[in-house]
Computed example of a mutant assay.
Amino acid sequence: MPPNKSLASPASHFQHFRERAGLSHAEVAQHVGVSSSCIWDIESRHDELASAYLLREPILRASNQ
């Protein structure tokens, strides 16, 4: 885990686990279905993951029903 995990943001956790898995921004983007720049945003903006992406899956599932 990132140092002092109690203070780590979702962005730093995301980056830590991406790096731990040995994946590039482009590889994660391809798996998730977003652009590589979105992955950069997730890792560099502490609120990006929660505000823009956490609801993406449920919304996509709901729209496909």
Results as ranks from 00 to 15, higher is better:
S6Q: 13
L49I: 10
A52L: 03
Q15G: 03
N4H: 12
G22L: 09
R56A: 02
R18Q: 04
L60I: 11
S63Q: 15
L23Q: 11
S12R: 11
S24D: 02
Q65R: 15
S12G: 01
V28E: 06
A29L: 04
L60A: 12
H25W: 13
S35Y: 11
A29N: 04
C38H: 09
L49C: 01
S51Y: 07
R45W: 07
V34I: 04
A29H: 06
V32Y: 01
L23Y: 08
A26L: 05
S6G: 13
A11T: 01
M1I: 13
D41A: 00
Y53I: 06
S24T: 07
I59E: 10
A62T: 14
R18N: 05
R56G: 00
S36Q: 14
S12V: 11
A50G: 04
R45M: 08
S6I: 09
S12N: 09
S37P: 04
R61A: 14
R18A: 02
R45N: 12
D41G: 00
P10N: 06
Q15V: 06
I42K: 02
H13N: 07
V28F: 02
E19S: 08
D47R: 00
A50N: 10
H31S: 05
M1C: 12
S51F: 07
R18D: 10
S37I: 04
L60Q: 15
S37W: 03
S6H: 13
S12P: 07
F17P: 10
G33I: 04
E19Y: 12
H46E: 11
V34R: 00
R18K: 09
E57F: 02
G22W: 13
Y53A: 00
E43S: 05
N4P: 10
L60V: 13
L55W: 13
L55S: 08
I59C: 02
L60S: 13
S24C: 00
A62G: 14
P10R: 00
E43Y: 05
V32F: 01
S36F: 07
P58R: 03
P58M: 06
F14S: 08
R45V: 14
S6V: 12
I59G: 06
H16M: 05
S9H: 05
M1T: 12
S36K: 12
S44W: 11
Q65F: 15
A21L: 12
S44H: 14
S24K: 01
